[in-house]
């Protein structure tokens, strides 16, 4: 059945050994359902662990919260948008006050007159260049 060359002198022939290997290859070692379930459970645990770690890492990278009192004040004023609007209004008011004190005074005291405006604009001061626009703004309310 086998060639003389394939045989060991006092052992099993190579062909017989190959046949044994082939039988061993064909014999499937099937994992139990419990093992498959355990392996899958490990995988899911790893996914959950990594998700948690990633969330923690992102939280660590997020800028730290400011002082709690400042946060409370911002919240009381209606949030950052409201505070931004308030800040803009404050800066505008300051600019008007600095740029045209006499106009503001006149407006406030009700002594506004055409001549007063002309006088103010005629002063030719650098800041006075801003007045017409602020004046219009003030008139519009």
């Amino acid at each position: 059945m086998t060639h003389r060359d394939d045989k060991m002198t006092d052992g099993l022939s190579d062909q017989s050994l190959e046949a044994l290997f082939a039988e061993a290859r064909d014999e499937a070692v099937m994992p139990s359902t419990a093992l498959l379930a355990a392996v899958m459970a490990d995988a899911e645990t790893q996914i959950a662990t990594r998700t948690r770690q990633e969330a923690a890492r992102r939280a660590a990278l997020r800028p730290t919260q400011g002082h709690p009192m400042l946060a409370a004040m911002v919240a009381a004023l209606g949030g950052w948008r409201a505070v931004a609007g308030l800040a803009s209004a404050a800066v505008t008011g300051l600019a008007i006050g600095l740029g045209a004190p006499s106009t503001v005074t006149n407006l406030a005291t009700g002594s506004y007159s055409e001549s007063a405006t002309v006088e103010t604009t005629a002063a030719g001061d650098a800041l006075d260049a801003l007045v017409p626009s602020f004046y219009d703004l003030a008139l519009e309310g």
């Binding site: 060991m8 006092d10 052992g11 099993l12 022939s13 190579d14 050994l17 044994l20």
Partner: peptide, 10 residues
């Protein structure tokens, strides 16, 4: 290994 196996299985 194969040589040893053939001997062991002889």
């Amino acid at each position: 290994g194969k040589r040893a196996l053939t001997q062991a299985l002889a």
